[in-house]
């Protein structure tokens, strides 16, 4: 593993709870690991499993999804929908060789800035132990067995987008 490995964690935070918690952590000047790139979504139920796989395929070492506590979702049960997908998706990525710890889901309400700080720090430490995932690099290595350049447009984007 590279010496100074800084994990890249793509975070999907629900607008009404976890994103506000991140805001609170910010204005309260709480320090936490600078490892997350946050995408604000209107509800954790908006997180499509495709987003998660796409993040890994583009070089994320971990994906963190934050939503409102059960019962608090502004769209009533978006977070339950996410929870169900998440339980299945964890099994799926594990069978495809991605450690399930790289995918995490947390309920963090708007007032829980400290919890956000703790979750990000914890997850960063965990991924540091696991090491980098480096899927774009692996894709390129797999394709060295091809005999000419490939034409896969999507992978060209993956290769140049990181």
């Amino acid at each position: 593993m590279p010496e100074n490995f800084e994990p890249k964690i793509l975070a999907f935070f629900c607008n009404w709870c976890t994103y506000t918690a991140a805001d609170l952590a910010g204005v309260s000047r709480m320090k936490y690991e600078p490892t997350t790139r946050v995408v604000r979504v209107m509800c954790s139920g908006r997180v499509d499993p495709q987003f998660v796989l796409d993040a890994f395929a583009h070089g994320a070492d971990g994906v963190l999804i934050g939503g409102c506590h059960p019962g608090d979702c502004h769209y009533v049960e978006g977070n339950y929908k996410l929870l169900r997908r998440f339980r299945m998706l964890r099994r799926l990525v594990a069978s495809l060789g991605i450690e399930p710890e790289r995918l995490r889901m947390e309920w963090i309400s708007a007032s829980e800035g400290e919890r956000l700080q703790k979750v990000v720090n914890e997850m960063t430490a965990q991924i540091k132990l696991l090491g980098p995932l480096e899927l774009p690099e692996r894709f390129r290595e797999w394709d060295t067995e091809l005999h000419e350049e490939t034409f896969d447009k999507e992978r060209e984007v993956v290769a140049s987008g990181q």
């Binding site: 499993p49 495709q50 998660v52 796989l53 796409d54 929908k81 169900r84 299945m88």
Partner: peptide, 20 residues
């Protein structure tokens, strides 16, 4: 863009229950 992820999304979202 990803058939399996979308199929998983469609089926897992309609599972009963609210606890792990």
């Amino acid at each position: 863009r990803d058939q399996g992820a979308k199929a998983l999304c469609a089926l897992a979202s309609i599972v009963a229950g609210t606890t792990n």
